[in-house]
Design a protein around this nucleic acid. Sequence first.
DNA 1: CTGAATCCGCTTGGATACTG
DNA 2: CAGTATCCAAGCGGATTCAG
Lengths: 129, 129
Amino acid sequence: MDMPDWVASVDPCDADCPSRDLLDLIGDRWSLLIMLVIGQGFHRNGEIRRRVGGISQKMLTQTLRALEANGLVARHDFATVPPHVEYRLTPLGVSLGHAVGPMFQWIEASYPAVLRARAAYAARQAQAA
Amino acid sequence: MDMPDWVASVDPCDADCPSRDLLDLIGDRWSLLIMLVIGQGFHRNGEIRRRVGGISQKMLTQTLRALEANGLVARHDFATVPPHVEYRLTPLGVSLGHAVGPMFQWIEASYPAVLRARAAYAARQAQAA
DNA sequence: CTGAATCCGCTTGGATACTG
DNA sequence: CAGTATCCAAGCGGATTCAG
């Protein structure tokens, strides 16, 4: 099996396995996209919401709270009026950003291959029917 | 901003952005875990189901179909009786495995830090209340 | 501008029973 | 063993409204 060595150390059976826990956090629809946008230099609620197309205010707040609670994002409330709040990646958040870099690069690079695979699969299904 | 350079090229606003599409596939609760287990050498339905604790037969089949449809996993039906079906990672699937390696390593390495951040956040909340 | 709160439809996903 | 089909409860998440 030509998978990387680290796979041997991951045991998805184990409820203690951090994979389950953290995959629930960063493996949802919005978390990584939001961290990405913050990393691109958009720090304010409205900026992020406009930049991450299709997200609702509810999900944005909810996801930001979760990221904050897990130490990936820091929330700075300037306590002014009108309100001014900025979100920044913590060092931990930045390190995660680097860790998911290869995955995003894979997505960019492999998207055509995935699209081809989908077409081939659809063709096989149509033929079988 | 000390985020990697590749972030600049990702635009989550763009509906065409492959990130949205593929994150929906591999960013769910089971896909990566299943690919991991297959990569560890468990190729049969029952093996995988027992190894990925807590997964239902329905979700296993559903996820395997999605992975197959996207070219990440190959399904081999030996057409025997009793049935014998094996799932293998495709080369594309193996390449994804390598791409998510750093993320899993980050999870293993950073889990204590996340746990500490959670505790600190909970303490802050309790104090505020 | 930031964000909390409510309502509610729809999807997700588990349990169960059944087929080849 | 592998997989499908049906039922159904829980909760995700959007739209809207209100507050500081």
